[in-house]
Design a protein around this nucleic acid. Structure first.
Length: 314
DNA sequence: GATCCGTGGGG
DNA sequence: TCCCCAAGGAT
């Protein structure tokens, strides 16, 4: 959960997750659908799919591997997580390299090569950080101390070098360039995409929902039926030709959602099916289900939040 | 190596 | 409002 996600955002999800799945066997035995439901809103949903697959592997092999090499073979576990588990759970003297450790390392060594090209070099330099026997004897404490140093002192902006225990050995600080490191490659502009989605209620308080393909963007998550997300905006007439059925659609509003690599604007139409008409909708648009039981990503929760809202509350 | 993959908070 | 960044991994 902590991959690319802040502790604050994770905590409530983590606690709820462990309540449902106290052991790795519990997680391995759970349907992926339930796992995605518990993950909904946290983002990077491949992590949930990988964690579930990982639990199955661990359960099948009768326990967790305790070496970096074996951990690396598990789904969702890469160079960072393998070392974090090895150090924190199994006391192996390795240094997990996350964003914090990359930043600390770049500053200690005044490494000016920009990310991401500098990553292999920073990994080699970071592996030497625990050369001190005291560090080697407490791999878990040392790893977490590095995370905390990066989170509280050696921060991305305005690092508080005055209180840093490593100030005297930091080359970047000596040169007065700590705050500028690590350098980063300029990023490309984020494109914009547009889509239309339809919120159709039946007479039982359920909504028309469909499940996205198992991999890729929002893989395995649920959504309101709608159009593709394309670079050109949709006209109202064109949009309505993609509706699940002919009925009295109300333009309910628009939402904006920023993904990692594009910004999305969605227009939402809403309608209520009369009691006698909740059949005859093509299955490609989904099925009528409870929205509270669905695995809805943040972008779809925004769409649902538009229902019956007045402009003043928006 | 470059891309793809969410969401929330801080400055 | 906008940009940055977060206990990264897979393809």
């Amino acid at each position: 959960m902590l991959q690319q996600t802040t502790v604050k955002a994770v905590i409530s999800y983590y606690e709820r997750f462990l309540t449902h799945y106290p052991t790795v066997q519990d997680l391995a035995a759970a349907p992926l659908e339930d796992v995605l439901h518990l993950w909904a809103g946290l983002g990077y949903y491949a992590r949930a799919r990988n964690l579930h697959a990982c639990a199955k592997r661990v359960s099948e092999r009768g326990g967790f591997p305790n070496t970096v090499e074996e951990l690396l073979t598990l789904p969702g576990i890469g160079a960072y997580t393998a070392r974090a588990i090895a150090a924190i759970a199994f006391g192996r003297p390795v240094v997990p390299v996350d964003g914090n450790v990359e930043r600390i390392t770049a500053r200690l060594n005044a490494t000016e090569e920009p990310l991401p090209a500098a990553r292999p070099l920073l990994a080699k330099q970071a592996a030497l950080l625990n050369a001190d026997p005291d560090a080697q004897s407490r791999p878990s404490d040392f790893a977490q101390a590095l995370f905390d140093l990066g989170a509280t002192i050696c921060t991305p902006r305005n690092p508080t070098c005055l209180t840093c225990p490593w100030q005297t050995s930091c080359i970047a600080h000596a040169r007065g360039i700590a705050a500028q490191l690590p350098a980063k490659q300029p990023k490309q502009t984020r494109p914009t995409r547009y889509g239309i989605h339809f919120l159709l209620h039946d007479s039982n308080g359920q909504a028309l929902l469909r499940t996205r393909p198992p991999t890729g963007l929002l893989g395995g998550m649920d959504e309101l039926p709608g159009t593709d997300w394309r670079s050109a905006p949709w006209s109202e007439d064109e949009a309505l030709t993609h509706a699940p059925c002919l009925t009295d659609w109300t333009h309910r509003g628009e939402i904006r959602h920023v993904f990692t690599h594009f910004t999305l604007y969605l227009t939402v139409y809403e309608a209520y099916l009369p009691q006698s008409h909740n059949a005859g909708i093509d299955s490609s648009f989904g099925t009528f289900r409870s929205t509270t039981r669905a695995a809805l990503p943040g972008v779809m929760k925004k769409c649902l939040a538009l229902t019956k809202q007045t402009p003043e509350t928006r």
